[in-house]
Structures are given as structure tokens and as C-alpha cells.
């Protein structure tokens, strides 16, 4: 399953909570603190990294507060051999 994260513009947010039931992963909550407008802004609470970056929260947000990021699959790369050797030599040299 894809993973991702969201960033909520807390100052723009009006704490309307439309994003909460829209999130299939239930990882959005309202903050205890208030923003300058006096609303409790929404925030991502996602300790298990279960946000999928699906953007459904952003699609329903009337105030356009949410930016959605999706993690990209990371190709397993190792440094080319000769470089690795050079690097190790360099590390030894400076250590």
C-alpha cells in the first residue's frame, strides 16, 4: 500500500471537520490549541504511517488547506564499487 502524508495550513483551517470522516485511514484529528482565527485546526496524527496520500481529505476541504504528499518507491542503489573504495579510503584518511 502506498504511503504518504499531509500538511495542513493550520492558520487557514476553520476546524470544520469535513476532512475527518473523509479520511479512510482515520488519521486526522483536531488540535487542542486554537489558531489566530479561534478555530481548532485539523492535524495529521499518524504514528503508524498509515496515511496513503489518497488526497480524499484535500478533495473535501472547503478552504483548500491541505497539501498531500505520496512517498515514492526508493530504488535500492549502492554506490559504484570504485567509488565505494575511494569513499572508504577517504573516510579512513580523514578519520
Amino acid at each position: 500500500m502506498a504511503t504518504g502524508r499531509i500538511v495542513i495550513d493550520a492558520e487557514r483551517c476553520k476546524g470544520c471537520e469535513l476532512c475527518r470522516p473523509a479520511c479512510p485511514q482515520s488519521v486526522i484529528q483536531l488540535a487542542e490549541s486554537l489558531n489566530t482565527k479561534g478555530y481548532r485546526p485539523a492535524m495529521l496524527v499518524d504514528p503508524l504511517h498509515s496515511c496513503t496520500g489518497c488526497a480524499l481529505c484535500a478533495v473535501v476541504c472547503p478552504d483548500g488547506c491541505i497539501t498531500v504528499y505520496r512517498d515514492l518507491p526508493q530504488k535500492q542503489t549502492s554506490l559504484p564499487k570504485y567509488e565505494m573504495k575511494e569513499t572508504l579510503a577517504h573516510v579512513e584518511a580523514v578519520a
Partner: peptide, 27 residues
């Protein structure tokens, strides 16, 4: 490490609207 899949459209001004919380005029 990641790519943006949704962001605020640039045809909206960078202002806060006067609409009530949750009003779908904003949507």
C-alpha cells in the same frame, strides 16, 4: 523521497475566505 499529489490551485488567491466553517461555497 515524495511527490505532491494535491495542492491548492494557483487560480485561488492566497487569502482566507469569509465563508463559515464547512460551507461548500469554498469547495
Amino acid at each position: 523521497l515524495e511527490k505532491i499529489t494535491y495542492e491548492r490551485p494557483s487560480s485561488l488567491c492566497d487569502v482566507h475566505t469569509h465563508y463559515c466553517p464547512g460551507c461548500t461555497h469554498g469547495t
